[in-house]
């Protein structure tokens, strides 16, 4: 048990520390790398909870795909670090004011925090033991039965976002030659190659320099 507690504190401490470093580090690439470290430690916390499926999904989706694209974009930014630090004192009051507002809101949320009355019973209600029902199966049983509408709705929202992204970026430019594989494959030999007999005139055959 003590090892588990120790692991929890290690994962939690690194997750929080790397979360701070995401904001604090000067170089945006380092920020993204710290973000990835934070994701990993969150996955570690999921494993400690016994939610191995969620842990793996977190690594696959966030670290394996989302953060790669973040890194991809951030690396191509051309950032001037000197210009970034200019006017620090000028923007300080505004930044501090926004920070204070957010802090006050957070304190309000924490102050009025209360657990849902049913939370205790839900947490205690026996989900089948891990050796009877695997993580993924348990999740599937809940998602595809009780919460199917919410699940479908979130899928639709993602679909709309995808369609939106495609509509915004897809444009047909005129005068661009594109490879059309279907046309290339559909071409027959007879359409493109024509063999003609040339009249051979005896004296000039093989004659050079004409």
């Amino acid at each position: 048990m003590i090892i588990q507690a120790l692991a929890f504190y290690v994962f939690a401490a690194i997750a929080v520390a790397s979360g701070v470093m995401v904001v604090a580090s000067r170089n945006p690439v380092h920020s993204v790398l710290f973000l990835i470290l934070a994701f990993f430690n969150a996955a570690g916390l999921f494993v400690l909870l016994g939610a191995e499926f969620l842990a793996m999904t977190l690594v696959i989706v966030y670290v394996g795909a989302v953060a790669v694209l973040f890194l991809f974009v951030v690396m191509m930014l051309d950032i001037n670090f000197v210009a970034l630090r200019e006017g620090f004192m000028r923007y300080l009051p505004v930044g501090a004011a926004i920070g204070l507002v957010l802090l006050a809101e957070l304190l309000l949320v924490v102050g009025s925090w209360s657990f849902a009355p049913k939370a205790k019973t839900i947490a205690d209600s026996p989900i089948k033991a891990p050796d009877e029902l695997s993580n993924a199966a348990a999740l599937g049983k809940v998602i595809y039965t009780d919460h199917i509408l919410l699940f479908q709705a979130s899928g639709l929202i993602l679909l709309v976002a995808m369609v939106g992204a495609i509509v915004l970026t897809l444009r047909e430019r005129a005068g661009v030659r594109r490879q059309r594989v279907g046309v290339q494959i559909a071409r027959r030999r007879e359409e493109v190659i024509e063999i003609r007999k040339m009249p051979a005139s005896g004296a000039n055959v093989g004659g050079a320099g004409e």
Partner: peptide, 20 residues
Amino acid sequence: INVGILYLFAISSLGVYGIV
């Protein structure tokens, strides 16, 4: 582990970081 194949998939999707 129960999610072995997901673990493999996760690890192979991380391979891109070393390169990038």
